[in-house]
Design a protein around this nucleic acid. Structure first.
Lengths: 340, 340
DNA sequence: GATTGGCAGTCGAACGGATTGAGTGCCAAT
DNA sequence: ATTGGCACTCAATCCGTTCGACTGCCAATC
């Protein structure tokens, strides 16, 4: 149905509309691009594109605008993932290179990504699901209060407070610490939880209740922290593209604050390491984000798991640029975190 | 100049304008409130208020709107800090009560505060400036990589990676850990930094370079982390009050993302523990926030330092409610964190 | 001296009609 | 398949009118 030139027309409609935020008409197409045919011919092509529901006219006498389906076609077949400019690459290098710990790396990544894309950027913390236990630390704080610190090989550190029912014996706590570490070191988290369940058994009966309190709290900690954390940046960019949303940007901001929503969204997008995937407009309807698109990529960390990062913005976004930026940052991040 | 009734008029103008977002006229005042005088009399009072620049008329034939100065007067003299409702108190109790660690307490506080006020809420992490060292942990990760974990008595945990120039000897690392802890335990952070400067001296010469690497990294960590962290929530509420800003909310969102700005702003507001203070409209001009007001309160944590929390919203905000909410959450937070 | 009712004047908001212009759809010709 | 021409549609814009809320002022009154 739709000719090769028809697809070219779709491409420039997407590009021009993204650039100008204005419905694009047949005349402006022949002016701005050299198709070598007249406006009337373009119009004929546009009728076909409209039949396929790839573009639509906001009102009778107006230019065309891509539909969600049109964007989808553009992303799948027409977008050229233009490589980043040298300046951009250098920005990534120099900006991420200075980071010192995991928090810092992720904070810098997300800011960078939001700057490169003028959108809201999201970075998920390295997944704990496949992480392994590196170290467990028990720190006595008060007579009956202990802080447990939990370190994974993905570089993540989690702490928690426990109130125990009896006075802490520091020497004995040292023994528990040593045994905990030898039991858990190198275990994946689900296995670690298993081992913790029966951990108290190896201690003398009179100590078991004390140890069990520590162990059960650690189990909770291990399991609870599977819920992944998210950092975000560039929320202000939403306000700049406000006109792209029919109503207010309020529901969008709301959905963004609800990190659980975003994590579910991330979870539904499959991302081979190094590639990017995209969700467009109403494809996100279940999350209350029917007017936004999300570009997601995966990065891997030393734990071996793949976590996600991406950008979120109005459906009318610069997909080429954003996909390239997400891919570049994801790759750089993988390189940085796999070294650990 | 301005009579007692004049101040009452100012109060209802502030209240009605905050409630309706519409300039309030003399007639609607006599309708909605029982002043026992006619509209003409109110008009006379309003002329005086306008002479004092406490209110202003957006255009000739329209009701009056409070000026920044009017809000200031309202906050300083007219606002009644209505205590929270029972339901609200209970919400605080039950919502904050479930928290398990410091991160969680602060995350819950800030969400709660944003819900109570329908504004952007900010909570500063307990200040490290007056915190004391509770524990230092050294964790060997690879042959030449160590993770340092740094725990303060305010419940804060910071980690960092160090690459060292020689292979790590675990037994020796244990010795360093023990000596570090006995040297630093209970020290305030500046003193801890001092002690670290000469810490390597107590080791045999051939070990000193190794220990010095650890010590100097720890010093950096101690000093760098003085820069305080902020958590925030309720950004979406800004979008809801968009009409209160002359242009777009973009610059406001931008300023909010720039946490350094907010920390400076917090820093300039003095807050006795348990009281609240307010900055209104153009008083925040230096931060690019001339159309917003900030209500701040202080809370204290076991470290003994006072940190801040607060809400930020359009100048047209419900000061009575917001001040009460900030105070309530600050008090509750103090109670919760002083226990540790 | 404070308060009041009355009244003219002002100005934004809302409404309606006319005009403009970008863009389409269709058709007959190439 | 492509093109030029042409009638048609419809949002956006401008302009004039009306409507209504409110003020400011003044003379009368308590």
């Amino acid at each position: 149905m739709v000719s090769a030139r028809g697809l070219d027309v779709l491409r420039v409609i997407v590009q021009d509309y993204v650039a100008t935020r204005e419905p694009v008409g047949s005349k402006s197409i022949v002016e701005r691009h050299s198709f070598g045919v007249s406006a009337a011919t373009i119009r004929n092509d546009m009728v076909l594109l409209e039949d396929e529901e790839l573009i639509t006219a906001p009102h009778t006498s107006s230019g065309r605008v891509p539909t969600d389906k049109g964007y989808r076609m553009f992303v799948d077949q027409l977008a050229d993932l233009r490589p980043l400019t040298g300046a951009q690459r250098q920005a990534i290098e120099s900006f991420l290179g200075q980071a010192d710990d995991l928090d810092d790396v992720l904070a810098r990544s997300v800011r960078l990504l939001s700057q490169l894309t003028n959108s809201v950027a999201l970075v998920q913390y390295p997944s704990l699901a496949t992480a392994r236990v590196r170290h467990v630390e028990l720190v006595p704080l008060h007579a009956t209060r202990i802080m447990t610190v939990f370190i994974t090989d993905s570089g993540r550190v989690e702490q928690r407070l426990i109130d125990v029912s009896e006075t802490v014996d520091e020497a004995f706590l040292g023994e528990v610490r040593a045994k905990l570490n030898s039991a858990l070191m190198g275990q994946a988290l689900p296995e670690a939880a298993d081992r913790l369940a029966s951990f108290a058994d190896i201690f003398p009966v009179e100590r078991q209740s004390f140890v069990a309190q520590i162990a059960s709290s650690l189990v909770e900690q291990v399991l609870a922290n599977r819920a992944d954390k998210l950092v975000l940046a560039g929320t202000a960019n939403l306000a700049r593209t406000e006109q792209d949303f029919t109503g207010s940007i309020f529901p969008v901001l709301e959905a963004i604050e609800e990190q659980v929503t975003l994590l579910r969204l991330f979870g539904e997008m499959e991302v081979a390491n190094g590639s990017v995937s995209t969700r467009i407009g109403r494809e996100n309807a279940e999350f209350g984000l029917e007017e936004t698109s999300v570009v997601t990529g995966g990065y891997s960390s030393s734990g071996g798991g793949v976590s996600r990062l991406g950008v979120l913005g109005p459906t009318r976004m610069d997909y080429s640029n954003n996909m390239a930026a997400v891919r570049a940052v994801a790759r750089y991040l993988s390189r940085l975190l796999e070294d650990n």
